[in-house]
């Protein structure tokens, strides 16, 4: 009798131990998730509340009479510094800066990676090591020298303006920021692409050479179409970094109409006149955070694996 029951009991006790383990693990994970999501939750619910409700109610409570008024106010009317036209202008400032900066730095990084792996030259490891070093330079140490350089570029722009009547964008704050972010991002994008292309089959490049493709034709027709995964990774990384950057933005475009979103948001929240409109501030912060979220959701879907399957033996 006991010989029959004991294995069953053992099995059930083993099962329950596993269940307890599961409960503990998932319980802890849920706890951390709640802890992490709490600020987002507070921001979201607050942005849909009226000011009365915020002043009298519980911070965690759901809105009694939900309103999207704070979102409209943040977008179109709230005061940034002394102008009260909402954050929409600054949002577009950021877009105008981020999109070219991300695209240029990613494409240049891809080109660098292509050269450093498939068109090796004497000293290519040294060049790569130096590019890698760029990843470790702290932002702060770049600020002053870069300001000097941007100043020179601006003066050159004025000279061009006087000579030709057009400054080619030199001295423009958005162009300056694009330049800074491209330079600063190159180290990272080069690193990403070099490591990806290191494993890229060199025989494909040889085959394309025999087929008569030129340096850039190989890059455009062979390398880029097969770089989707690393391209997406780089774009997500660069977009998040550049969109969220505050230091360069406040240093080189910290005042007036040229401010990017991050600086403008800071000015909205730091305003000292009147009542602090928490709901508007929260809505503005949510709007500022949306693009990076969207990039993750949209770009993440193209994060395809196994794109290289079939290039070399299967």
């Amino acid at each position: 009798m006991s010989a029959v029951t004991s294995p069953a009991r053992q099995a059930s006790s083993g099962m329950s131990a596993r269940t307890i383990n599961r409960i503990v693990i998932y319980g802890l994970l849920a706890l951390f998730a709640i802890f992490y999501l709490m600020p987002l939750f507070v921001m979201l619910v607050t942005s849909f509340k009226t000011m009365d409700e915020i002043q009298n109610g519980n911070m965690l409570a759901l809105p009694q009479s939900p309103t999207i008024e704070p979102w409209f106010k943040a977008w179109g009317q709230t005061c940034v510094g002394l102008t009260c036209a909402g954050i929409k202008g600054y949002f577009w400032n950021s877009i105008k800066m981020v999109v070219p900066a991300v695209l240029i730095s990613t494409l240049l990084g891809a080109l660098n990676g292509y050269v450093l792996t498939k068109w090796r030259f004497r000293g290519h490891t040294l060049v790569f090591a130096m590019m890698l070093f760029a990843c470790f330079i702290p932002f702060q140490s770049v600020l002053l020298p870069m300001a000097t350089i941007l100043g020179s570029i601006g003066r050159f722009g004025v000279t061009l303006q006087n000579a030709t009547g057009f400054n080619f964008g030199l001295g423009n704050s958005t162009v300056n920021l694009v330049f800074v972010h491209v330079v600063y991002g190159l180290g990272f994008t080069t690193l990403f692409f070099r490591n990806y292309y290191e494993a890229f089959p060199t025989e494909l490049i040889k085959a394309a050479q025999v087929d008569g493709a030129s340096f850039f034709q190989i890059f455009r027709r062979i390398m880029l179409p097969n770089s989707m995964p690393i391209f997406v990774v780089t774009v997500i990384y660069q977009f998040t970094n550049i969109w969220n950057d505050f230091l360069f933005a406040s240093a080189y475009a910290g005042t007036g109409d040229v401010m990017p979103m991050t600086v403008a948001l800071n000015n909205v929240v730091n305003t000292s006149t009147g009542v602090v409109e928490y709901n508007v501030n929260m809505a503005a912060a949510m709007i500022a955070a949306l693009p990076t979220l969207i990039v993750y959701v949209v770009a993440g879907r193209y994060f395809v694996r196994g794109l290289m399957a079939g290039a070399v033996k299967g």
């Binding site: 494909l204 040889k206 085959a207 097969n226």
Partner: peptide
């Protein structure tokens, strides 16, 4: 040239 890995453009 025909390569060992075939080197077909994926």
């Amino acid at each position: 040239m025909v390569f060992q890995s075939y080197a077909l453009y994926p």
